[in-house]
């Protein structure tokens, strides 16, 4: 399944037969950490079971109401490619796609994600095939330390979906919510422009 497939197309394709392939969630008793290193629910915490689709796979998980999407992805679904740089909506390292819209996962609560489709960096490459954006990031040495890279990729992915041939100013505007302290901004924008040219050619 394409990692960027829209929610509507996903539902059309699978009908009502969406089966939860994984029931993720703390398995240990309350107050004890479980053997995978997944933190348990806090004793007495209020929780709700939600269903969401992550990188094309339906998941169910019992979430604490205070869990953010970012910590849920990282700690409970073991998708650690999404990074937490500030945990307060400043840096964009945790950017993921929620129903194809780039959002700061640190600023979304997990319980709001019931029924939503999430795409993380792990969902960008299918069957070992890198997304053209990922290849362009490699070719242009866009990641230095790499900590902001997943967020940069997801913002760029959303930009190119909406605007396949952006100008350099449009790239900067779309990605300016993604801080890179290594300050490799020029390499990031060059990489996005290169990927857009490549995607454009394939479309034509």
């Amino acid at each position: 399944m394409s990692p960027t497939i829209s929610r509507r197309r996903f539902l059309e394709g699978t009908g009502a037969a969406v089966v939860a392939t994984t029931i993720a969630g703390p398995s240990g008793a309350q107050g004890t950490a479980d053997i995978t290193g997944t933190p348990p629910h806090a004793p007495g915490a209020r929780t709700t079971r939600i269903s969401l689709t992550v990188n094309g796979t339906a998941r169910q998980i019992e979430v604490e109401h205070r869990w953010t999407l970012a910590e849920t992805l990282r700690d409970h679904l073991h998708l650690t490619g999404t990074k937490i740089g500030c945990d307060r909506g400043e840096c964009g390292a945790c950017t993921v796609l929620v129903d194809d819209t780039p959002m700061y996962a640190c600023s979304q609560l997990a319980i709001w994600m019931d029924g939503r489709h999430i795409t993380t960096v792990e969902g960008l490459s299918a069957n070992g095939q890198l997304d053209p954006l990922q290849q362009a990031f490699i070719d242009h040495d866009a990641p230095q330390c790499g900590f902001c890279t997943s967020g940069q990729l997801m913002s760029a992915k959303a930009l190119l979906a909406a605007n396949p041939a952006p100008t350099i100013d449009e790239v900067r505007a779309a990605m300016t919510g993604n801080v890179c302290r290594c300050s490799n901004y020029a390499h990031y924008t060059e990489a996005v422009l290169a990927a857009s040219r490549q995607t454009d050619r394939r479309r034509v």
């Binding site: 950490a33 998708l79 490619g81």
Partner: peptide, 27 residues
């Protein structure tokens, strides 16, 4: 020369300190 670990850096596979989860780990 592209980085020898470039694929890890663009796929989320690169394992940073906070990505380490150990059995029975406390916070």
């Amino acid at each position: 020369t592209p980085r020898i670990d470039a694929v890890e850096r663009v796929t989320g596979k690169a394992r940073y300190t906070n990505d380490v989860q150990l059995p029975g780990m406390l916070f």
